[in-house]
Nucleic acid binder design. Sequence first.
DNA 1: AGAATTAGACTGACCAGTCGGTTTTATTTC
DNA 2: GAAATAAAACCGACTGGTCAGTCTAATTCT
Lengths: 199, 199
Amino acid sequence: MQKRSQETRTRILNTSLELFSTIGYEKTGVALICEKGSISKGSFYHHFPSKHSVFEALLDRWLTNIDNQFESEIALSVDVPSSILAMSETFAQLTQLSTDYLPLFLEFWLQSVHDPMIWQRTTAPYQKYVDRFNLLFEKGISEGSIQKMDPKEASYMLISLALGLLLQKMMSPQSEDWSSMSKNCISRLIQGIKGVPNA
Amino acid sequence: MQKRSQETRTRILNTSLELFSTIGYEKTGVALICEKGSISKGSFYHHFPSKHSVFEALLDRWLTNIDNQFESEIALSVDVPSSILAMSETFAQLTQLSTDYLPLFLEFWLQSVHDPMIWQRTTAPYQKYVDRFNLLFEKGISEGSIQKMDPKEASYMLISLALGLLLQKMMSPQSEDWSSMSKNCISRLIQGIKGVPNA
DNA sequence: AGAATTAGACTGACCAGTCGGTTTTATTTC
DNA sequence: GAAATAAAACCGACTGGTCAGTCTAATTCT
């Protein structure tokens, strides 16, 4: 039966996620993961070849999650501005869900900067989003629903805004309502980019 | 003579900055800092009580730098939108200057999330910028040069955009021209927030 | 001289990863 | 369906190496 095996594997993953997020990747010892997750050292290394491989597995899980979320959302709307808004909605949801795990996202980013292997792994999907936004904006611009501008600029603007909101959310006490703040900011940005009636 | 002493101190700081940025704080050993900076272990610990205190010193240096830069820039313009633009200009410059050290900024952020002591240290100046922007936007809104909106929202939008641009700059190959991209994005954001002629 | 600074060998804690062995689960055979 | 066998999962004491920080002695400045 692979069921037990699968279960410990995910337990390793989840416990690691928890610890990596709260105390950081480097500071989290394998021993601690094992203790907190009631896993033995041997079992840990039976499932993962290294501590870092757990990190990578978490990264992959995170990326595919985001990807699925976006993929399911993008097909729905036909109007470009609302389509963008929908994707942003998804984004807000996503951050809402995983507030506690946000620091890990930073850790991913940081490691990407230092390690070319991780960089490649993260960049590919990232580039995919950029391209997707680019296409969306191009369409919007040509159909007149978005102002005449460099679509790349629009994409980067939107993504930057989203990332920056994430970053700030991380720093502020949990009490603050970043979910609605994010929504408002994004919709206002889109409003500012929308095509003007005449032009 | 304190001159030599001062010199080794800054050499420790600069070498650490270099290494922390390129290979990360955790991965950088004190021995390596000493080797690369031609400093002995004893000297190192004569000037700093711990590795982490070097980190903190770098953080302080960074923060006061930013602060000075902003402080000198803010007084110049009287018109609100152009004042904001000026501050953003400064920001762009600032990122331009320290491209290589950008990863350290992330490291600061990450540690702030994990360590309350660091958090306090970073939050204070951060809050100062937010407040400053708030005031600026409030003024702009009341004088009509900025749209009617929550000034906090405007501040967070602008800061988010700036942070997000930084984040993305870090990930992309050095070739890309983020300096002009940043400028364009920020000025477009301000354009979108500017007061409409009628209203 | 003597205070400040520099030198670098040394220590002790910590920690990722290993290894020999046990227990649980799955499969085969009678 | 139960005994026998194989395979997968689990266990935790142990190791080897790393690294922040210490200590004593030497050197350099005033």
